[in-house]
Measured scan of single mutants.
Amino acid sequence: KKVTINGVEIKFNNPEEAVKFALELAKRLNLRIEFHGDQIKIE
């Protein structure tokens, strides 16, 4: 399963991993996060 985070394609074994990764990243950098299907936007 491929997920695009800020235009960067990252391959994950499952979608939950991708979501956890994105949330952790957003929390660490104190950023806002948006989900659009397989696209995750962090700003």
Score class of each variant (00 low, 15 high):
Glu16Ala: 10
Lys1Phe: 15
Ala26Lys: 01
Phe35Trp: 12
Ile40Leu: 06
Leu23Val: 08
Ile10Trp: 05
Glu9Thr: 13
Ile33Thr: 01
Ala18Val: 12
Ile10Thr: 02
Gly37Phe: 08
Phe12Arg: 00
Val8Ser: 03
Ala22Met: 13
Lys27Leu: 10
Val8Ala: 04
Lys2Phe: 11
Ile5Pro: 03
Ile40Tyr: 01
Ile10Pro: 00
Arg32Lys: 12
Gly37Tyr: 08
Ala26Thr: 03
Val19Phe: 12
Asp38Tyr: 06
Ala18Glu: 03
Glu24Asn: 05
Pro15Lys: 09
Glu17Asn: 06
Arg32Asn: 07
Phe35Leu: 06
Val8Gln: 05
Leu23Phe: 07
Leu31Val: 12
Leu29Asn: 03
Asp38Phe: 11
Lys1Glu: 05
Arg28Pro: 01
Phe35Asn: 01
Asn14Pro: 10
Pro15Ser: 13
Leu25Asp: 00
Lys11Tyr: 15
Asp38Glu: 05
Ile33Ala: 01
Ala18Cys: 15
Asn30His: 10
Glu17Ser: 07
Ile40Lys: 02
Lys11Leu: 14
Glu16Asn: 08
Asn30Ile: 07
Asn30Tyr: 09
Gln39Cys: 14
Gly7Gln: 04
Lys20Asn: 06
Glu9Met: 11
Lys20Tyr: 10
Lys27Gly: 08
Asp38Thr: 07
Arg32Met: 08
Glu17Asp: 12
Ile33Gly: 00
Asp38Ser: 07
Ile5Arg: 03
Val8Gly: 04
Arg28Asn: 06
Glu9Val: 14
Glu43Asn: 11
Leu29Lys: 02
Asp38Met: 08
Glu9Ile: 13
Glu16Gly: 11
Arg28Thr: 05
Lys2Gln: 07
Glu34Thr: 12
Glu16Trp: 14
Glu9Leu: 13
Ala18Arg: 02
Ala26Asn: 01
Val8Pro: 02
Val19Asp: 02
Glu43Tyr: 15
Glu43Leu: 14
Ile10Ala: 01
Leu23His: 04
Gln39Asp: 11
Lys41Pro: 00
Ile5Glu: 02
Ile42Asp: 01
Val19Glu: 05
Ile10Glu: 01
Val8Tyr: 13
Val19Gln: 04
Lys1Met: 15
Thr4Cys: 15
Gln39Tyr: 14
Asn14Gly: 06
Lys11Ile: 13
Lys41Ser: 08
Arg32Ala: 06
Asn14Met: 11
Val8Trp: 13
Lys1Trp: 15
Glu34Gln: 08
Asn13Gln: 09
Phe12Asn: 01
Lys11Ala: 11
Glu43Met: 14
Lys20Ala: 10
Phe12Ser: 02
Asp38Trp: 10
Arg28Asp: 05
Lys20Glu: 09
Phe12Pro: 00
